[in-house]
Simulated scan of single mutants.
Amino acid sequence: MKKLFLLAAFLTGATFFSNMQAQTIADNAIGLRLGGGDGIGAEVSYQRALGGDNNRLELDLGWRNDNNFDAFKLTGLYQWVWNIDGGFNWYAGVGGGIGSVDVHPEWKDRWDDSTFLFVAGDIGIEYNFDIPLMLSLDLRPEIGFYNDDSVLNDFAPDVALGLRYQF
C-alpha cells in the first residue's frame, strides 16, 4: 500500500511538473514597465526568449527628468518562467545594472552626482492574451551601490505594471 501511494504521488508530481513546462513564451516582447522605484519611473522593456526552455532575458531602460535631478538606469535580468494555468505565468529572476544621476545645480549642496551599480531580483505574474499582448505585475527589489551623498537610496523595492507587445 505504501509503495502504491508513493507511486501515485510521484506520477501526480511528474504530470504537474510536465504541465508547468508545457507553456511556451514569446520569442520577443517589447513595451513599457510602469513603476516608481527609487525615482526612475517608466522604463522601455524588451524581453528575449532563450533557447527552447522557458527562460528569457529582460532588458529595461528607464529615465527621468525631475525638478531635482535627471537620471537613467539600464537593467538586465535573467528570468525563469513557469505556467500557472492557460495564459497565466509566474516568473522569477536575478540580474543587475548601471545608472547615472545628474543633480540640478540648486541641489548640489544637498546631493552629489553619481554613477552607480546595482543588483536586482525579480518576481511577478503575467497574463498572455490571445492577441499578442502581455500584461504583468512584478516586484523588483534592488540594492544599489552609490556614493554617500546620492539622491537615491541603497535599497529600492520597485513594484511595476508591464504592458508588452509579443512577436
Rank of each mutant, 00 (worst) to 15 (best):
Met1Thr: 13
Lys3Gln: 15
Leu7Ser: 14
Phe10Ile: 13
Gly13Ala: 07
Ala14Gln: 09
Thr15Ser: 14
Phe16Leu: 11
Ser18Val: 09
Gln21His: 07
Thr24Cys: 03
Thr24Lys: 15
Thr24Leu: 07
Ile25Gln: 02
Ala26Ser: 09
Asn28His: 15
Asn28Leu: 06
Ala29Lys: 04
Ala29Glu: 11
Leu32Val: 08
Arg33Lys: 14
Gly36Thr: 13
Ser45Glu: 00
Ser45Cys: 10
Gln47Thr: 11
Arg48Pro: 01
Leu50Phe: 05
Asp53Met: 09
Arg56Thr: 07
Glu58Ile: 10
Leu59Val: 13
Leu61Gln: 00
Trp63Glu: 06
Lys73Ser: 14
Leu77Lys: 00
Tyr78Arg: 03
Trp80Tyr: 13
Trp80Phe: 14
Trp80Arg: 09
Val81Gln: 08
Trp82Glu: 12
Trp82Gln: 14
Asn83Ala: 15
Ile84Pro: 05
Asp85Gln: 14
Gly87Lys: 02
Trp90Gly: 05
Gly95Tyr: 03
Gly96Leu: 04
Gly97Gln: 00
Ser100Arg: 04
Val101Cys: 03
Val103Lys: 01
Val103Phe: 00
His104Tyr: 06
Pro105Gly: 13
Lys108His: 09
Asp109Lys: 08
Arg110Asn: 12
Asp112Ile: 05
Val119Asn: 08
Ile125Gln: 01
Glu126Phe: 05
Tyr127Lys: 11
Asn128Phe: 13
Asn128Ser: 15
Asn128Met: 13
Phe129Arg: 05
Pro132Thr: 04
Leu133Val: 12
Leu133Arg: 08
Leu135Gly: 06
Ser136Pro: 01
Ser136Ala: 15
Leu137Tyr: 10
Leu137Arg: 02
Leu139Tyr: 12
Phe145Ser: 03
Asp148Thr: 08
Asp149Leu: 12
Ser150Met: 02
Leu152Thr: 01
Asn153Leu: 12
Pro157Met: 02
Pro157Gly: 06
Val159Phe: 13
Ala160His: 05
Leu161Asn: 02
Leu161Ser: 01
Gly162Asn: 07
Gln166Pro: 04
